Computed example of a mutant assay.
Amino acid sequence: MTQGAVEISTEQPTDITIYTMQGIQKVARRIPAGTASIALEPGLYILQLNGKGHKIVIR
């Protein structure tokens, strides 16, 4: 993981959504196949990817 960002690798274009722990949507986009990096402020987030939620920490 990159400092201040989350890196996501997918084999096909994918819709992602990132929420704060308070439920505020910060990012909603379609990422292309390959690796995408999304900059975020430090904190805890929920990454929704392929219908599953993943807790992530950005430092």
Rank of each mutant, 00 (worst) to 15 (best):
T17E: 14
T10Q: 13
I31V: 11
V6N: 01
I18E: 00
Q25S: 11
I24G: 08
Q25P: 06
L40P: 05
Y45V: 01
I31R: 04
Q25M: 15
A28L: 11
A33M: 14
P13V: 12
I18H: 02
T35S: 04
I56A: 06
I58L: 02
R59A: 10
L47Q: 02
Y19Q: 00
I24V: 14
A36S: 15
D15K: 13
R59I: 07
I8R: 05
L47D: 04
G51N: 08
E7S: 15
I56M: 03
G34K: 01
I31A: 12
M1S: 05
R30K: 15
E41Q: 10
R30Q: 08
V57R: 07
V6F: 03
I16N: 10
Q48F: 00
Y19D: 00
G43T: 08
I38D: 04
L40R: 05
K52F: 02
I16L: 08
A5N: 07
I56Y: 06
G43Q: 01
I46C: 04
L40E: 01
G23H: 10
M21Q: 09
R59K: 12
T14W: 04
M21V: 14
R30E: 15
R59S: 12
T20C: 02
E7H: 13
R29I: 12
Y19P: 01
P13D: 09
A36R: 15
V57T: 11
H54P: 05
E11A: 15
I56L: 14
L40G: 02
V6Q: 07
I56K: 05
V27Q: 03
I38T: 01
V27S: 06
M21H: 01
K55Q: 08
I38Y: 03
A33P: 01
L47E: 02
V6E: 03
I46M: 03
I58V: 12
E41M: 10
A33H: 06
A28D: 12
I24F: 05
T20W: 00
S9E: 14
P42W: 02
A5R: 10
Q48T: 07
T14E: 10
G53Q: 13
Q12Y: 09
G34L: 10
L49S: 10
A39H: 09
S9D: 11
T35F: 06
R59M: 07
I31L: 03
G51R: 10
Q48N: 12
A36D: 15
Q22F: 12
S37L: 09
G43L: 04
P13Y: 00
I24M: 09
I16H: 06
T35W: 00
T20E: 06
I46A: 12
Y45W: 05
S9F: 01
A39L: 03
L44H: 11
A33V: 08
M21L: 13
K52E: 14
M1T: 07
L47F: 04
H54Y: 13
A28Y: 06
G51M: 12
M21S: 12
I8S: 08
N50E: 14
I38V: 09
I8K: 04
I16Q: 08
P42C: 06
P13I: 02
Y45F: 11
I46Q: 01
Q48A: 08
L40V: 00
Q12T: 15
V6L: 07
T10F: 09
I56V: 11
S9M: 11
